[in-house]
């Protein structure tokens, strides 16, 4: 029983990181109606940038976010303008291919610069732990969870308390109508992609401290992130967060009760079950001709 409880706590803590990464992905979908298959590669890119920065500047991995988040934000805007904006027809399908190509390109470049060997970000708290009741929790999970909560809170504040956030939400609701009332949809899209990438950078740091990664790690990551946002309902931030928690908790409990090799599988089973009843996902809106 304690094992299950421990797994559940750990699941919630790591779930926070996935919630952050998935909300970037679902935000991008909501604003642009594109599936960013490259999101996993962007997270891995963020992890490598932090790796390089903390190595060369000798600073704490979390501190590198001060550099990597703005860098990734700008890079995201550039990528959106160069590769996503030119897609006029058949956006959904073509965007999958374009972002997949971006993922391959990033994987190739990272492999060229950092080799295909596994690395991991290092900090004093990556293995140090503290006791809670009968089990111990590694500091990094708590720090990571707190970081992700903070960033998610900022994201929600921007989205729901600022004018620019209102224009992002308007674009998510109805792109054409948003354009009609004078919202610069192209600018909103670029910024949304930038925000998505900045959150990927933050997720990448936590991912990089808790997991050994290499340039090919993005496949595993993206398959998880995509299933999370489908379970939550495409374009729903709340859905992404809830689904991320469901995924990680169910995975960790399965790992304890059955076997770690079946951990991923259980989430797929949950996904199939939910989609059978609600094809639009937990919080998705059923728009007949869209989803």
């Amino acid at each position: 029983m304690t094992l299950v409880l421990e797994a559940a706590v750990l699941g919630v803590l790591t779930g926070g990181v996935y919630a952050l990464m998935a909300s970037g992905l679902t935000l991008i979908f909501g604003v642009m109606r594109i599936i960013n298959v490259g999101h996993g590669a962007l997270v891995v890119l963020g992890a490598y940038l932090s790796f390089a920065a903390s190595r060369s500047l000798h600073i704490d991995p979390f501190l590198t976010l001060v550099i990597t988040m703005p860098v990734m934000f700008l890079l995201g805007m550039v990528l959106q303008i160069v590769f996503i904006r030119p897609l006029k027809t058949d956006r959904e399908a073509l965007s999958v291919l374009v972002t997949y190509a971006l993922a391959l390109g990033i994987e190739g470049l990272l492999g060229y610069f950092f080799t295909a060997n596994y690395t991991q970000l290092q900090a004093w708290y990556d293995t140090a732990s503290f006791p809670i009741g009968s089990f111990r929790i590694t500091y990094v999970y708590v720090f990571g969870f707190a970081l992700c909560l903070a960033i998610l809170a900022v994201m929600f504040l921007v989205l729901y308390r600022t004018t620019f956030g209102a224009s992002i939400r308007a674009t998510m609701l109805n792109r054409t109508a948003a354009q009609l009332i004078g919202i610069d949809v192209d600018r909103v899209s670029a910024v949304a992609f930038g925000i998505g990438m900045a959150t990927a950078a933050a997720g990448g740091v936590v991912f990089g401290i808790t997991t050994a990664f290499n340039p090919g790690s993005h496949y595993d990551l993206i398959s998880r992130l995509l299933t999370i946002i489908v379970l939550g309902g495409l374009g729903s931030l709340r859905g992404a967060i809830v689904a991320a928690l469901i995924m990680l908790v169910s995975e960790d409990i399965t790992a304890v009760l059955i076997s770690p090799v079946w951990a991923n599988f259980v989430f797929f089973v949950i996904l199939v079950g939910v989609l059978l009843i609600r094809p639009q996902g937990l919080y998705g809106v059923r728009v007949r001709d869209r989803l």
Partner: peptide, 27 residues
Amino acid sequence: FALRTRAATFVIVTIAFMFMLQLLAEN
């Protein structure tokens, strides 16, 4: 199952099934 969904969701569901099969082959 997958064709209950449309457009973007269908794309992702097919990806999920592929990884599910990969996982089964491995496990």
